[in-house]
Amino acid sequence: WVPTKREEKYGVAFYNYDARGADELSLQIGDTVHILETYEGWYRGYTLRKKSKKGIFPASYIHLKE
């Protein structure tokens, strides 16, 4: 896992994603996520609506905010 280059990196989910394991994070369309790390097509972070739950999710489900 590699920390993100920018201190504040955010994105928005444009697909729903159902977590398949305890380390994964479920997403709903429109969720804003804070991205902490990246690795081979995956991000690690949390949604702003539930900051206490961190997990991994596919990068392809996220539109990055500039």
Rank of each mutant, 00 (worst) to 15 (best):
Y43V: 03
D18A: 12
T47S: 10
W1V: 07
L27N: 00
V33F: 02
Y61G: 06
K54A: 08
K53M: 10
I35P: 01
A19V: 01
Y61L: 13
Y15F: 12
D18W: 10
Q28F: 08
L25K: 00
G21C: 13
H34Q: 06
T47V: 15
T32S: 07
G41L: 06
T47P: 04
K53S: 07
S60Y: 07
E37Q: 07
L48G: 05
A59R: 09
K50H: 14
A13M: 03
E40S: 09
G41A: 06
A22N: 10
Y10C: 14
Y61W: 04
K65Q: 12
S52G: 11
G21S: 14
F14A: 14
G45A: 01
Y46G: 02
G11K: 03
N16V: 07
E37K: 02
W42S: 00
G21K: 10
W42A: 01
F14G: 07
V33T: 01
E8R: 09
R6W: 10
V33Y: 02
I29G: 01
G55V: 02
I62H: 01
E8N: 12
L48W: 07
E37A: 10
Y17N: 00
D23M: 08
Y10F: 11
T4P: 09
G55K: 03
T32V: 15
L64Y: 03
K50Q: 14
H63R: 14
R49G: 14
Y46F: 08
T32K: 12
L27W: 03
Y43F: 09
G55W: 02
I35K: 00
T38N: 04
E24L: 05
K65W: 15
K9Q: 13
K51D: 08
G21A: 11
S26R: 04
W42H: 01
K50T: 11
I35L: 14
P3E: 09
D23G: 12
D23V: 06
I56K: 10
R49N: 15
I62N: 01
Y10Q: 05
T38L: 08
F14K: 15
H63E: 11
A13L: 02
E66A: 14
G41I: 05
L64G: 01
G41P: 00
D23A: 08
H34N: 03
I35D: 00
L36R: 01
I35Y: 02
I56A: 08
I29P: 05
V12P: 01
E66H: 14
P58V: 06
W42D: 00
P3Q: 06
Q28S: 10
Y61Q: 04
Y61T: 10
A19P: 05
E66D: 12
R6G: 13
F57L: 02
A22H: 10
P58C: 07
K65H: 13
Y17E: 00
E8L: 09
V33R: 01
L25I: 14
D18T: 14
G30D: 01
G11R: 02
S26D: 10
Y43A: 05
R6N: 12
T38C: 10
Y43K: 00
H63P: 01
P3A: 06
A59Q: 09
Y17Q: 01
R20I: 09
Q28N: 10
H63S: 09
P58F: 08
L48D: 09
R49S: 13
L48N: 09
Y17H: 02
E37M: 07
Y46H: 14
P3G: 07
Y43S: 01
S26T: 10
T4L: 09
R49A: 12
K9E: 09
E37I: 06
V12F: 07
G30Y: 03
S26K: 03
I29M: 07
E8V: 10
G21T: 14
K50E: 15
Y39L: 11
Y39G: 07
P3K: 06
L27H: 00
G45R: 03
H63K: 14
L25W: 04
D23Y: 07
K50R: 13
K9L: 13
S26H: 04
K65T: 14
P58M: 05
F57H: 03
K5W: 08
R6A: 13
V2A: 10
T47M: 11
K9A: 11
L36T: 08
E37G: 06
H34E: 05
E8Y: 12
L48R: 05
L64K: 00
G30K: 01
A22F: 10
F57C: 05
G21D: 09
T32R: 13
V12M: 06
G41H: 06
L25R: 01
H34P: 00
L25E: 00
E40G: 13
Y43H: 04
V12G: 01
R6M: 11
E66S: 14
G11L: 10
Y15A: 15
Y17K: 00
E8D: 10
E66I: 13
N16G: 08
R49M: 10
K50P: 15
